[in-house]
Nucleic acid binder design. Structure first.
Lengths: 195, 195
DNA sequence: ATTTTGTGAGTACACTTGTACTAATAAAAA
DNA sequence: TTTTTATTAGTACAAGTGTACTCACAAAAT
């Protein structure tokens, strides 16, 4: 009897519009009317999909996690190439990844003072941690990780390096050329094979 | 004839109140009335000191830079201890430094979508870069930097590492114990002496 | 003591915000 | 075709926003 509706696709479309708004206008632009306009729907419809602003923000973080996860899972590489591919999914190398990163940082910063948003932000952060650990494990399996090194320390260091490089990429211009960002990360990975 | 006025102290007091508000309530709390209440002054007085919200935000970034610069200049250390001291000024190891970092990140993220704020944010970021370069130079003078290493690469890597560690410190709880954060940074510095 | 100035408190305006409604329309399932 | 549902447009409200005033008061320099 009902008018059919794919609630999941609706929510995803709204969240994607939210990410675009977050990149273009920042947190202050993430309003009911603003996102609805970007998504091309009525404000009341957005309100039906997300009963509260908090629900929308939480779903945005979830969507980012899903998108990164999907890209990572789609990689058809092995060995060192896979390691590089994994980590590159977390750097703002193209429009899509920059979009995600800007939105992630905006919502992450919001979660510093909005405790309701912290669990979702922490979940996303833990996902990044897992990627770092997996990357180092793959590196070891490829024989490019000196067994004398401390895996925990290297994982923490890699995570910090990755975050720092990503931040620097966000700050330096709209779409920084990949070169300088990549060079530091890849060179660091190269060094892990040595003593 | 006039009523005496220390405009500089007024502005600084207002900006410090702004930093407190930024840490407690985030960007959305940085309003005329909110900051005035935190500073214990009338909204009209704040308006006289800063004619516009943008001027206030810009001055906040400037104040953060000044505070870090002052702390760095006050260090009475030499050699490796000075290197550590310099870099520790940029990590959220106590309430004061956490306050600065949270405010800096909030305003930095705002500068991603508020082009008027970008120059001030970039200026602050360049200051951090200078600290990293100086730190490596000092390390070299102390004979704890292998001359075979590439100074530019190491400076970029150190900067990224520092930012990443700082971010991680912000995310993990109110005041993370210094241990885990320091360990990664100091161990990284130790390695720079080797090949 | 008078003049000059910043402060404080208050008011005002136009605007945006989140949230909550209504009523009319469109569309798909029965 | 009828029934059921979602979407739309519109309105409403209380609250908060930046900015701009006024006016009485307090304080310092002349």
């Amino acid at each position: 009897m009902p008018r059919r509706i794919d609630a999941e696709a609706r929510s995803a479309a709204i969240a994607e519009a939210s990410l675009r708004v977050l990149e273009r206008e920042g947190l202050s632009g993430l309003s009911v009317r603003g996102v609805a306009a970007e998504a091309g729907i009525a404000a009341a419809s957005l309100r039906r999909a997300f009963a509260t602003q908090h629900a929308l923000r939480e779903f945005c973080l979830q969507l980012i996690e899903d998108r990164v996860t999907a890209r990572v899972a789609a990689l058809e590489l092995t060995g060192r190439a896979l390691v590089d591919g994994l980590l590159l999914q977390l750097l703002p190398l193209d429009k899509e990844r920059r979009l995600e990163l800007v939105a992630q940082v905006q919502l992450g910063v919001l979660s510093l003072t909005d405790s309701a948003l912290r669990p979702a932000a922490i979940r996303l952060s833990e996902g990044v941690d897992r990627v770092c650990h997996v990357a180092l494990q793959l590196l070891a399996e490829a024989g490019q990780f000196n067994p004398g090194r401390d895996p925990d320390y290297e994982a923490q260091r890699l995570r910090a390096l990755l975050d720092g490089i990503a931040m620097h990429g966000l700050w330096s211009g709209e779409l920084p050329e990949a070169g300088p960002m990549l060079r530091v990360l890849l060179r660091h990975l190269d060094e892990l094979a040595g003593p």
